[in-house]
Design a protein around this nucleic acid. Structure first.
Length: 424
RNA sequence: GUGGGCGUAGCUCAGUUGGUUAGAGCACCGGAUUGUGGUUCCGGGGGUCGGGGGUUCAAAUCCCCUCGUCCACCCCA
């Protein structure tokens, strides 16, 4: 019989106590910020019906599903949280007070090639607002994500947000390319998301490819690519009518960011479209200023997702913030803390005769929320002291035959060395 | 998917052109006589050198395959 492999499957991680403390430190910041913004935490199953995720716009994420069939059901591990949130919202849409603010911290799965900052499972903090069509929702989310970056200890200039609006693109294309075939907008976005990676020429090729999903004419494709180079709102305005709602939304969005005091950390960039098909309006992604890592987080407005899933339209906006890239960035900057184990009290019964007294004392301390470790086996005092020291325990309680017979225990403060007696 | 680096004790690594029973530091366990501490000193356990095959009198060392991991490219939340 072959030996069972002790390694976790490729692209997955074990969390030993040190790692887990670091992970909880990060999640704790996510959670505190979410609570400060009055978001409620929710969760959904890690396994969903595969069809919840299998959209047909050519997204890479669909090809990377961990999926399997079981008893004629096609199931998949969630690659992202948004569809599950959408499912939950839609299922109770009639009874939910909108706009609602929900957040999740979940493990997501994608079967993909690993690189720095990307494994096959990762945790993601999601913040979503459902039922609010205005850009106040986007601004609130961006405010929250910058608060998180600040809380984690990053300096103001360490990370920036790039913002665009798919609605801007859609409006300007509606008069030309999209007039006859509005359905190509989603695959078009998926293609132009690749521009940073494969270059403008390759994107044009994909857009005109007669066997592809978009099939633009050459001149149209070049117009689209040219628009992506725009880096100021005023330049973008020249492609649009004065009464463009998308442009007004973006301008208002930037105004609101001033009130959040983050306007200087956000730039307009027409090439940001995001790789997911369901975005419809403002999209954004945060990246480290040095530009050495992948995007830290990203999100945007996805007003048509509910319809796509067969429900009545509900406007929605959200972002996902992964645990891996931010950990790389914090680690590079020396901001990832080494967190020690925390134990308040170590209780040492010298022998089995004293153990019941130690147990009763432990119960009292635990009721007061102390973290209490009872020495479980036979040990020498010297050894127990050294262990308590290394644990970082605050106090050690010595319950010897002498003390217990007098109904007391000796308490030693390990930092000061002071000893006193406490009644048991 | 392509190219490269790495894989030796729990961890970080050393191991000279192939040559006895494979090493160090840290960690772990025990001891330095009586019921008191991260130091010190002494001792100990632990490795089929990632796995498989080959060359050789002899392989951690050379060759092939394979798995894992890291980096770059490629690709993408």
């Amino acid at each position: 019989m072959s030996k069972t492999s002790l390694q976790p499957p490729r692209g997955t991680r074990d969390f030993y106590p040190d790692d887990y403390r670091q992970r909880e430190w990060l999640f704790g910041h996510f959670r505190r910020v979410a609570h400060r913004f009055a978001f409620e935490e929710v969760d959904a199953p890690m396994v969903e019906h595969a069809e919840l995720f299998t959209r047909k716009a050519g997204e890479e994420i669909v090809d990377q599903l961990y999926h399997f069939e079981l008893h004629d059901r096609h199931l998949a591990l969630r690659p992202e949280m948004t569809p599950s949130i959408a499912r939950m919202v839609i299922a109770r849409a009639g009874g939910l007070r909108m706009p609602l603010r929900w957040f999740t911290i979940t493990q997501n799965w994608r079967y993909e090639r690993m690189t720095r900052g990307r494994k096959r499972e990762h945790f993601q903090w999601n913040m979503d607002i459902w039922g609010e069509p205005g850009v106040a929702a986007e601004a609130e989310l961006v405010g929250a994500l910058f608060e998180a970056l600040d809380a984690l200890g990053l300096a103001r200039g360490d990370a920036r947000l790039r913002v665009n609006s798919r609605a801007l693109l859609e409006e300007s294309l509606r008069r030309s390319v999209l007039r006859q075939r509005p359905e190509v907008f989603e695959p078009l976005c998926v293609v132009i998301d690749k521009i940073d990676k494969i270059g403008a020429e390759a994107v044009v090729e994909l857009l005109v490819d007669p066997t592809g999903p978009v099939r633009l004419e050459s001149a149209q494709a070049r117009d689209v690519v040219d628009m992506l180079r725009i880096t100021s709102l005023d330049d973008a305005a020249r492609h649009l009518p004065d009464d463009s709602p998308a442009l007004a939304d973006l301008r208002r969005f930037f105004e609101l960011l001033e009130a959040y005091d983050v306007r200087d950390r956000v730039v307009f960039d027409a090439s940001v479209v995001r790789g997911l098909a369901y975005y419809t309006g403002i999209v954004f992604e945060a990246f480290d200023s040095a530009g050495t890592l992948r995007s830290i987080c990203g999100g945007g407005r996805y007003d048509r997702l509910a319809q796509t899933l067969g429900a009545r339209p509900i406007p929605a906006v959200g972002f996902g913030f992964g645990d891996m890239v931010i950990a790389e960035l914090l680690s590079d900057k020396g901001l990832l803390p080494d967190l020690p184990r925390v134990v308040d009290d170590v209780l040492f019964p010298f022998g089995e005769a004293e153990r019941p007294s130690a147990i009763r004392l432990a119960r009292r301390l635990r009721e007061r929320d102390h973290r209490v470790e009872i020495v479980l086996g036979n040990a020498k005092l010297k050894r127990v002291m050294a262990d308590a020291d290394r644990l970082g325990a605050a106090r050690i309680w010595l319950l010897g035959p002498d003390e217990v017979s007098r109904g007391v225990a000796k308490v030693r403060d390990l930092a000061s060395g002071e000893e006193s007696e406490e009644t048991l």
